[in-house]
Design a protein around this nucleic acid. Structure first.
Lengths: 100, 100
DNA sequence: GCGGAAGTTTGAGAACTGTCAAACTTTGAA
DNA sequence: TTCAAAGTTTGACAGTTCTCAAACTTCCGC
């Protein structure tokens, strides 16, 4: 496990990449669960119906697109929604997605 | 050519389908060109780099998702952005996409 | 009517991506 | 030090979809 996973800066965000990230139902569900919660969530604590390794893949896609920030606490990896950064880069996008 | 192509009602719009429609760069470009223009646009008049038959496919995806409305004028098919309907179903979504 | 213009349909190929299984790494606790 | 927990990595497979080519349909103008 990389100690410090790569996270893009806000200036590096790309709409195409963000759209490709949230178009997947599993990933969009992850984003919505983070948005609905008032705390960061461990990878293993999400309500998703895919295998562990598949989840890892989805988290990576979300992280590289700039949607989430990941950090370790012990053996667990916590996930945080980068709401402020996203609102800066694409105002209104996250809110528009919360609907569905 | 079907005289009257199928268009979904606003109540039938589905976010997942809309996202799948706009995630494709060619289709998103079509939507943006319609949004930027103050008039409807013929299929053949879009600035896209794909074959005619591929374009037909993209227009169909956009139409079935509810993003555009199509109607014939002679041998030409005109395309209109369903902005009002989309704003009703997914407020803020179209505006958020106009950025990129 | 005939030919051209504008799209559509169908078929097929290439590329991408979501998924799981199995093996591996790292960390915390007993 | 040993073991279990939590994720990651790699490999492979299946399904989807973007794309083009070729043949076809419809409509307009000559």
């Amino acid at each position: 496990m990389a100690r410090a996973p790569q996270h893009p800066e806000v200036s590096e965000f790309e709409l195409q990449q963000v759209l490709e990230a949230i178009v997947d139902p599993v990933r969009r569900s992850i984003v919505q669960q983070l948005d609905a919660a008032d705390h960061d969530i461990k990878c293993g604590d999400f309500d998703i119906a895919v295998h562990k390794s598949t989840a890892t893949h989805h988290f990576k896609v979300l992280r590289e697109a700039g949607l989430i920030r990941q950090y370790y606490v012990g053996t667990s990896r916590l996930n945080a929604l980068r709401r402020d950064d996203l609102d800066k880069a694409f105002p209104g996008l996250l809110d528009a997605l919360a609907v569905g």
